[in-house]
Simulated scan of single mutants.
Amino acid sequence: MLTKKGKYGLKAAVHLARLPPGASTQVAEIAETNQIPKKFLDVILGELRNAGFLASKKGKMGGYRLAKPAEEIIVGEMIRALDGPLAPFPCASRNSYEPCEDCDVDNCEVRILMVRIRDAMGTVLDAYTLAQMRDLSQEQLASFVDYI
């Protein structure tokens, strides 16, 4: 499962992707519009800035903006920057692999399933750009809610 940090980071990034290119906005506006706790959002936006997804400017006319076009920002990369590896367990991670203490790694059915879950999540998250998320139509969103 993804964390609230990842979810809030995506919501904030989509908010910024809706602004005109190069435009910025303040944390308070993003937090209020998206119902995200401001202090938590400050931390999240700082991490996204440090990872190169956002740029910021201090001062009265400052705020956050996308550091590159929304079409160039891969959703999976943002999630990994905020939440770390996509694998549900360390034994299923590509980059942060750690064997479990309680199983035979080469014959663990749970690990096999977790690797498949990791791969499925990565396939979906890496297939979308921030621009594609931003451009989801109200009709698509409405039909998705009916799907759940």
Score class of each variant (00 low, 15 high):
residue 78 M to H: 06
residue 77 E to Q: 13
residue 70 A to T: 06
residue 71 E to C: 03
residue 135 D to Y: 12
residue 35 Q to D: 13
residue 125 L to S: 02
residue 36 I to G: 04
residue 46 G to N: 05
residue 134 R to L: 07
residue 135 D to T: 10
residue 95 N to G: 07
residue 72 E to H: 11
residue 80 R to Y: 00
residue 131 A to N: 10
residue 21 P to F: 09
residue 39 K to A: 15
residue 106 D to E: 15
residue 78 M to I: 05
residue 46 G to P: 01
residue 25 T to V: 12
residue 80 R to C: 03
residue 121 M to L: 15
residue 64 Y to S: 05
residue 47 E to T: 09
residue 141 L to H: 06
residue 126 D to Y: 05
residue 33 T to W: 08
residue 106 D to Y: 06
residue 42 D to T: 14
residue 136 L to S: 02
residue 58 K to D: 12
residue 23 A to E: 14
residue 93 S to L: 01
residue 140 Q to C: 03
residue 46 G to Y: 05
residue 135 D to P: 09
residue 99 P to S: 01
residue 59 G to W: 07
residue 142 A to P: 07
residue 22 G to P: 06
residue 94 R to S: 04
residue 75 V to F: 00
residue 87 A to M: 02
residue 33 T to R: 15
residue 43 V to M: 11
residue 44 I to Y: 01
residue 43 V to R: 15
residue 93 S to D: 07
residue 51 A to V: 06
residue 47 E to Q: 14
residue 28 A to C: 01
residue 54 L to P: 04
residue 84 G to D: 08
residue 45 L to E: 06
residue 67 A to N: 12
residue 108 C to M: 04
residue 100 C to G: 10
residue 36 I to S: 00
residue 72 E to M: 09
residue 64 Y to T: 04
residue 121 M to P: 01
residue 55 A to V: 11
residue 140 Q to R: 11
residue 104 D to E: 13
residue 140 Q to Y: 05
residue 137 S to V: 03
residue 139 E to P: 02
residue 62 G to S: 11
residue 39 K to E: 14
residue 27 V to Q: 12
residue 141 L to Q: 08
residue 135 D to K: 09
residue 100 C to Y: 08
residue 109 E to T: 02
residue 38 K to H: 05
residue 144 F to N: 11
residue 134 R to Q: 12
residue 94 R to D: 14
residue 126 D to G: 03
residue 114 M to G: 02
residue 53 F to S: 01
residue 97 Y to F: 14
residue 51 A to P: 04
residue 46 G to W: 00
residue 63 G to C: 03
residue 138 Q to F: 08
residue 93 S to V: 04
residue 110 V to G: 00
residue 125 L to C: 01
residue 32 E to Y: 07
residue 138 Q to S: 13
residue 142 A to I: 08
residue 113 L to Q: 14
residue 114 M to T: 11
residue 86 L to K: 00
residue 87 A to P: 01
residue 117 I to V: 15
residue 130 L to A: 04
residue 42 D to K: 09
residue 77 E to L: 08
residue 43 V to K: 12
residue 57 K to L: 10
residue 108 C to R: 03
residue 112 I to V: 14
residue 24 S to R: 15
residue 35 Q to H: 14
residue 99 P to F: 02
residue 98 E to Y: 06
residue 122 G to C: 02
residue 136 L to M: 14
residue 139 E to D: 13
residue 77 E to R: 10
residue 106 D to I: 05
residue 77 E to S: 08
residue 45 L to M: 13
residue 121 M to F: 13
residue 62 G to M: 04
residue 48 L to R: 02
residue 110 V to I: 10
residue 100 C to V: 05
residue 107 N to E: 10
residue 115 V to N: 04
residue 114 M to N: 11
residue 61 M to Y: 13
residue 82 L to N: 00
residue 32 E to S: 12
residue 142 A to M: 11
residue 35 Q to S: 11
residue 77 E to D: 14
residue 141 L to P: 05
residue 44 I to P: 00
residue 32 E to R: 14
residue 45 L to H: 02
residue 118 R to I: 04
residue 44 I to H: 03
residue 123 T to V: 07
residue 78 M to F: 04
residue 126 D to F: 09
residue 81 A to F: 00
residue 45 L to V: 08
residue 33 T to A: 15
residue 43 V to D: 14
